[in-house]
Design a protein around this nucleic acid. Structure first.
Lengths: 162, 162
DNA sequence: GGCAGATGGTTTCATATGAAACTATCTCGC
DNA sequence: GCGAGATAGTTTCATATGAAACCATCTGCC
């Protein structure tokens, strides 16, 4: 008998070189660092901050628009909006044409938070990106866009390809 | 009076160009696509798969090692390991020198899953990366490493820098 | 008009999560 | 040796999450 301890047949996955894993670690660390700040200052949860960020940029969106835009699910959006409305940071206005929709926008109070968090977010992004030269930043941006497009076009891959 | 509608004073954050946001979207989409597969086939949760992935590469790690390696918290690891042990996919061995530690490794059953999932994971990575040329892949890898290092060295940024 | 889906949004319910408390063991200074 | 932390790991508990059911409105199509 050749060998009773299995030797060469196990393919191994080197996590440190596995792209989805690297992306996940990096992304979580970056998000956590930022979340830390706005949570400390304004008591905003991540979903709440996302809603504010989107509405600050594009007021008048419906909840569904927000969900699509941020890749959150609609339950999460519904709850984040409810709590923001409660805190008078966001207001809802009915849509004239479609009774199911509510148009969301920041109240002055919400806008004040937005105005305060945006420079902070940009500052933190700058701190991260200080590791890269301007050319590298452009390159990174382009590469991430390519990958994002790619994944978007894959939809959900069928369970098994054979 | 000049203008009663505030015009220029609101800085806006363009989410589509905000790196942490882009990373988060991309990372979540990629992870979800992969998670879908191993969840369907083996009923593995994300934390469980991470534990298996790490043990397949480096058997004999302690729970804490696994937690550090994967950026999961120790509660999550503890639970994932408990459920994997329950399913006879992972086994625990006491450490001789240190009674607090247990050494974790894959059972044959766990190894079989690992051997099955690894090619799938590599295949999916390949599908994503098909969007990039070999040079671009290297560049991306290097850029992500730089950022990850950078963030690691920031520790937790003090609440406010002034 | 009016009814069979589709769509926007909320609620319910069962599960996942993580901070904090806890147990057990180890380490170090005396 | 032995008592005061540190460290590994688990359990508790309160909160976050998301799938599925639900309600309301809208959009065809007859």
């Amino acid at each position: 008998m050749p060998n009773d301890v299995k030797t060469l047949e196990h393919l191994t996955l080197d996590l440190d070189r596995f792209l989805p894993y690297k992306l996940s670690i990096l992304s979580n660390r970056a998000s956590d660092a930022i979340a830390q700040h706005y949570s400390d200052r304004f008591g905003l949860s991540v979903p709440e901050w996302r809603v504010i960020a989107v509405l600050g940029q594009s007021p008048g969106m419906s909840a569904r628009d927000v969900a699509t835009r941020t890749a959150m699910d609609k339950v999460q959006v519904s709850r984040a909006v409810a709590s923001l409305v409660e805190a008078r940071r966001v207001k809802r206005d009915g849509d004239e044409a479609d009774g199911r929709i509510t148009r969301l926008s920041l109240t002055p109070r919400g806008q004040a938070i937005y105005d305060d968090v945006v420079p902070l977010a940009l500052h933190l992004e700058e701190v991260f990106l200080a590791a890269l030269t301007p050319d590298e930043r452009k390159a990174l941006d382009r590469l991430l866009d390519k990958l994002t497009d790619r994944i978007a076009h894959l939809h959900v891959i069928p369970a098994r390809s054979e």
